[in-house]
Design a binder for these strands. Sequence first.
DNA 1: CTAACATTAAAACGAACGTTTGAACGAAAT
DNA 2: ATTTCGTTCAAACGTTCGTTTTAATGTTAG
Lengths: 265, 265
Amino acid sequence: MSDQKNGSDTRERILDVAERLFMENGYEATSMRTITSAAEANLAAVNYHFGSKEALLREVFRRRLAWLNHERLQALDKLEEQAAGAPLKPSQILEAFFGTLLRMGENPALGGMVFLRLLGRTLTEPAEFIRTFFAGEYAEVIDRYKLALFSALPDVPKAEIVWRLHFMLGAMSYAIAGTDVLQVVTGCEVGDLAGEKATDETDDTVLARRLAQRLMPFLLGGLRAPLPQFDDLQRIQKEPLPKTARDTRGNGPNQDPRPKTQDQQ
Amino acid sequence: MSDQKNGSDTRERILDVAERLFMENGYEATSMRTITSAAEANLAAVNYHFGSKEALLREVFRRRLAWLNHERLQALDKLEEQAAGAPLKPSQILEAFFGTLLRMGENPALGGMVFLRLLGRTLTEPAEFIRTFFAGEYAEVIDRYKLALFSALPDVPKAEIVWRLHFMLGAMSYAIAGTDVLQVVTGCEVGDLAGEKATDETDDTVLARRLAQRLMPFLLGGLRAPLPQFDDLQRIQKEPLPKTARDTRGNGPNQDPRPKTQDQQ
DNA sequence: CTAACATTAAAACGAACGTTTGAACGAAAT
DNA sequence: ATTTCGTTCAAACGTTCGTTTTAATGTTAG
């Protein structure tokens, strides 16, 4: 009990801190020294407990995704059991898939919005080991839900469903990851929740709930949108578009005097 | 003419190479030595022409976004001129905003899919200087389109429109950025274009066109989806969710024997 | 008590990073 | 012919990176 306490404590502290810092700065921009000092642990602790920085990131995700994927599969199992062979409603499938995730954002014990944001941002990271890791973690869940959508929408071509699943994942990931990115651009619309000034934690919880309420109808609307007309082989070329102009700033305006002596201050 | 040729040549070569490498590896994971050697330029060339690595990234985006934003504003101007004061159709607005971008993906001279992917991935990067840069570059365009959507959808609350604009941006960015990410997970559905084996460039062009055809209906469906019912103040708490269990792997299964002596091979 | 073990601690490793320097080059301009 | 200036070059700058090493610590079991 107490022999584990010391070790497990440091281990969990590192995981929690790494989760937050990876979310805030990204994987590459977060150094092990930043992590260990923020976790009040020794620099060597990460390599001792996890083996490497890459393995640390994997473990940060594994402890959350294990719960998430299990919950998602269980939700789908339950739905299919209740339906007794009949195809499910798309809204049920989306609720099981996205609702489960968004409910993580409302529960700080499961990572809360910190993990949701980290997940959304990391899904687009180009690093090879991250992609292969996610591919392995997500394979089963995606496959199950893909098949469920196939039988829920028998009239929609399967390729179209895959595309739309892709779009839905994107809308969700981006909405989560960018709650402070695009909100800045669009004019700070998060804080309009009737003057609630609470902890960051409860603030995040409220945000997660609002996000879920507004995201689900959007996704359903997109999923059930009319199919595009397929004028595939006709290759419309709306305008020839001058192939010469390499970019906009050939010699036109909009050109600030950059390379005179470069802008070192 | 020739005195500029040498310098401009290196400069453009660096921009092109950096655009591709930032897309493939991300900003932090791409070193200046990788960039300059791939561009067959000297290591100091980046600091000479652009001043710093950050400024290089900004310039990579500026030369594309200048064209894109100008085109987007012009498209909206044209639409509003034709409408003569009447509100626009949402489909027109989306076509002007997203169609303009997706048409960049079909034109390699404007960056093609390389730039589109880079844009999609960089929008979620957490680095401060990137966010402030994008905020400045996008502010005017987003504002104009936001207002256009407000008058196009007078019955929809403005906050809801902003959220859905956010979702649409996410679906697009993610769909673009992850054409090879999620496609791997979902089972390699890109290559199903009737056995076309062509250059990477024309392949990308075809991909951009297919993406546009399938993305636009999805976005329109999401934008026009029925509004969510607002049961905001009731705080549904579907299940208490044990606040004790910090994470899934307290002592359950799914636990691989990690910290025995760590996994250094 | 002591041997074994898991964990922490401090220090150093070599490699890679972004940036700077100062000289050299080459085509204009004087 | 010489100066000028934008550009390129090789080399080095100091810093930070992830990882490893070696010793010290405290707890558990025989």
